[in-house]
Design a binder for these strands. Sequence first.
DNA 1: TCGCGCTTGTGAAAAGATTCACGAATGTAG
DNA 2: CTACATTCGTGAATCTTTTCACAAGCGCGA
Lengths: 181, 181
Amino acid sequence: MSSEELAARGQTTAAQVRKDLSHFGSFGKRGLGYPVDELRARLRRILGIDRTWNVGLVGAGRIGLALFEYPAFRARGFDCVAIFDSDPEKIGRELGGVVVQDPSAFEEAVRALGIELIVLAVPAEAAQEMAQRGVDAGVRGILNFAPIRLNVPPRVPVEDVNLVMELEALSFQISKDEPDA
Amino acid sequence: MSSEELAARGQTTAAQVRKDLSHFGSFGKRGLGYPVDELRARLRRILGIDRTWNVGLVGAGRIGLALFEYPAFRARGFDCVAIFDSDPEKIGRELGGVVVQDPSAFEEAVRALGIELIVLAVPAEAAQEMAQRGVDAGVRGILNFAPIRLNVPPRVPVEDVNLVMELEALSFQISKDEPDA
DNA sequence: TCGCGCTTGTGAAAAGATTCACGAATGTAG
DNA sequence: CTACATTCGTGAATCTTTTCACAAGCGCGA
Ligand SMILES: NC(=O)c1ccc[n+]([C@@H]2O[C@H](COP(=O)([O-])OP(=O)(O)OC[C@H]3O[C@@H](n4cnc5c(N)ncnc54)[C@H](O)[C@@H]3O)[C@@H](O)[C@H]2O)c1
Ligand SMILES: NC(=O)c1ccc[n+]([C@@H]2O[C@H](COP(=O)([O-])OP(=O)(O)OC[C@H]3O[C@@H](n4cnc5c(N)ncnc54)[C@H](O)[C@@H]3O)[C@@H](O)[C@H]2O)c1
């Protein structure tokens, strides 16, 4: 497949595709394009998704459960192996083979199960504490839904999901074309 | 408040704050900094969040309901005034004052209620169709959770939320420091 | 084997974003 | 009223990203 076709599929340009790929190596064959299967395999390796990641879910509330039940994560190699929630009502309940645990078991479970990524879906007040405890226990990356800026060492990447801001981005794009209301 | 202090809070630099703001006008006073209340008011206006937006939720599944019950949206001016789902089990149920409707009522409701934004939380197969129907009915922006690229006219902004990619971004950042596994 | 049609990989150019640095305002204190 | 300590707004300089454009490589068919 040529960079031209990859670009069309990825909503970008052929030059961009080639430059981006060339940053990681030389994948294509001149006159022929890129061998799709091999390219995918090498990109999976570069992205670090050529393996399974053990994920811990912190907070079994509305968003946490929606995520846990979303099959696409496991299908893409992100395996939620533990759930933690402070609500006594929820502790002990089983969800798809995983039992909700008390947060006091967090550090132990991170180490025992080899959890490298956590999804933080707890109220903002609890997020910083759980992030810190996770990092101390060996967590290497955090997907954060709480609307606060987490303070963690720079070696631990954090991806923030802020859906209110996504809506605000829409409202800005819509409003900016209107001189005045 | 000075650009220095704004920068510290926003994880950026003073020069960046000043350049960004200057792009929209001249808000500060030399020697003094920016008047916070007025700055906030003017930024809200620029972002288009100085008013309420009527939002329609398409798909009352796991993620859709989690979003609907999330109070931060209404608190920030995004008011979910209608819910649509094709599941007969769900149609007619009331959730926080809003009744789940059959998708056949979609266009009518968009017009009647003045829905300008929709949240697409339906399976990927249904997303394009509902996007198109929304746009035809007058929807002006789409927050899309379905893992497909929507085809809509350029005047309608789309914000995609792809949580698998967020996790992949973490795995990449973690893996890239390791020469080899 | 040679020529031809494609397509990559990559320097160079262009465009875009960030940082620097300083003149011009602004309030304050004496 | 003047001197001074601040801090904005903004051109110029720097850094980054994207786009351009083309030599070099590849397979194919004659
Ligand atoms: N619901 C949404 O659509 C949505 C969207 C974006 C962001 N968020 C954010 O995600 C977070 C969770 O939102 P939610 O709507 O799922 O809230 P929720 O109240 O439904 O769930 C939070 C869960 O966290 C648990 N919890 C509290 N403290 C805990 C701790 N220390 N350890 C483990 N569990 C703990 C609670 O028992 C509860 O079950 C919040 O920060 C919210 O701002 C939610
Ligand atoms: N659950 C998650 O954590 C998650 C995360 C990211 C993205 N997504 C995406 O969000 C979408 C919804 O995911 P989900 O987990 O909530 O799925 P879900 O199956 O729980 O919910 C989907 C809902 O949409 C309804 N529906 C189907 N066709 C419809 C139509 N034409 N009009 C109106 N409603 C219709 C179904 O009846 C169902 O209630 C999917 O595209 C999924 O890939 C989900």
